[in-house]
Write a protein that binds this DNA or RNA. Structure first.
Lengths: 224, 224
DNA sequence: CCTGCGGTATTTGTATACAATACTCTTTGT
DNA sequence: ACAAAGAGTATTGTATACAAATACCGCAGG
């Protein structure tokens, strides 16, 4: 992460996700270069990457703006993620090895420990969760699938700051993971796919509910 | 297509697909710049795009090489395309409008004309086919789905040169499209998805059979 | 008040120079 | 003979200058 273009990518991305650069804001290369302390060259590269993440859009005349994510776009992203991660789980079940199974179990074990603490450790939860899903994707052994999911998977980072994980929701994730492991043990692709698809869609609805709550909240604020 | 980086992209891409740059060949920016008649800057941009197309891979130390596509990778790409285009067809069926339906019918009509000629016009066939699928993707109205499919859809260009379309195969495409239209008319998402998935998978097997044929052929040549 | 037109200011695209990094092939020591 | 080290070469990364394209703003005419 020491290359200037990587730093620019991370910097701009976090400015977008934090709301420091609001949806619709123009992203002029020179201004960003100054803010990131690098020249325009790496900024251009970062913008192209963010564009392929759909975090940035470009007009027909090549100007870049912060993309605005409607609630439908988020639904869209989750729907696709549900399909693709479902496929990944199926492939993983069909190709499962003992070593991979151990890694997956390990990840969910760490996840379980983190949520049983008096105050659940959300950072550890997220890390273990990421590893759990990454391990499955590795076993699925499809570079394409991995490439497609990469743009989808880290998407709702906004959500992390907005959504307060309830202990119940965390526990539910853990137990769905356990069921997934059971499907892997039996090399049952169809079962694994079904659980994974449901797992992602449940996460989506948790997000949508939380978002609706926030929307009402800010409406109330506006009314005051 | 007048921008230098677009020309570089097209040029390099076609060099790869034509085999002029064989799998595994190193892609040095300077050399490519010279071959394309532009400077390194647009070449770098083109390489990043080709990398996200998975036509180019980079080592951990940032050197670029022509990706080598195993038969499994191709299978992978088709499998994903089948899933995603299936989804697109389902969404399209659920959102179909009369205008869109007219466009889709128009495309398949042109396709039908092209293949009923004494000598089928493959160029027109391909153009109409592309438009048919593009129209469906438009109706599906999912930017993400469009973005993901974009990298998959134009993939097997190699195939076009290798595969001799039989009149029977062309006619089969046309009639599958007609069935898809029937599903659209009835707004039946599940039906549309099923047909589309089958449509893509049939294309895959046609490709795989042709490829197997070619492989045997070149084995024979090697033996001589 | 709105619309179209220039001219100016911004912004992006490309080329090039130089710096940093990685590769290669030879040399040297065990 | 083999491994490690190092110099020299090849390749990529970044900054910067200039060119081309585009947007903005004020003004004239309807």
């Amino acid at each position: 992460m020491s290359r200037a273009s990587d730093r620019a990518y991370e910097a701009i991305r976090s400015m977008i996700l934090s709301g420091e650069l609001p949806a619709g804001a123009q992203l002029a290369e020179e201004a960003l270069a100054e803010r990131c302390g690098v020249s325009r060259t790496p900024v251009r590269e970062a913008l192209r990457r963010l564009e392929s993440d759909l975090l940035v859009t470009r007009t027909d005349t090549q100007r870049s703006f912060v993309a605005d994510w409607s609630i439908d776009d988020v639904a869209d992203a989750f729907e696709l993620r549900a399909v693709l991660e479902g496929k990944a789980a199926r492939r993983a079940a069909e190709r499962m090895t003992d070593a991979a199974l151990a890694r997956i179990r390990g990840a969910n074990h760490r996840l379980g420990e983190a949520i049983r603490l008096p105050v659940p450790d959300v950072a550890v939860f997220l890390e273990a969760n990421r590893d759990f899903h990454a391990a499955i994707l590795d076993v699925a052994a499809s570079r394409r699938l991995a490439a497609l999911l990469a743009t989808l998977i880290e998407q709702p980072v906004v959500w992390r700051t907005a959504h307060h994980y309830s202990r119940e929701a965390l526990r539910r994730s853990w137990s769905e993971h356990e069921e997934l492991i059971a499907a892997f043990v039996r090399r049952d692709g169809a079962w694994a796919e079904a659980i994974m698809t449901g797992h992602i869609l449940r996460a989506y609805h948790a997000y949508a509910d939380a978002h609706r709550g926030l929307a009402e909240l800010s409406q109330k604020e506006a009314a005051e």
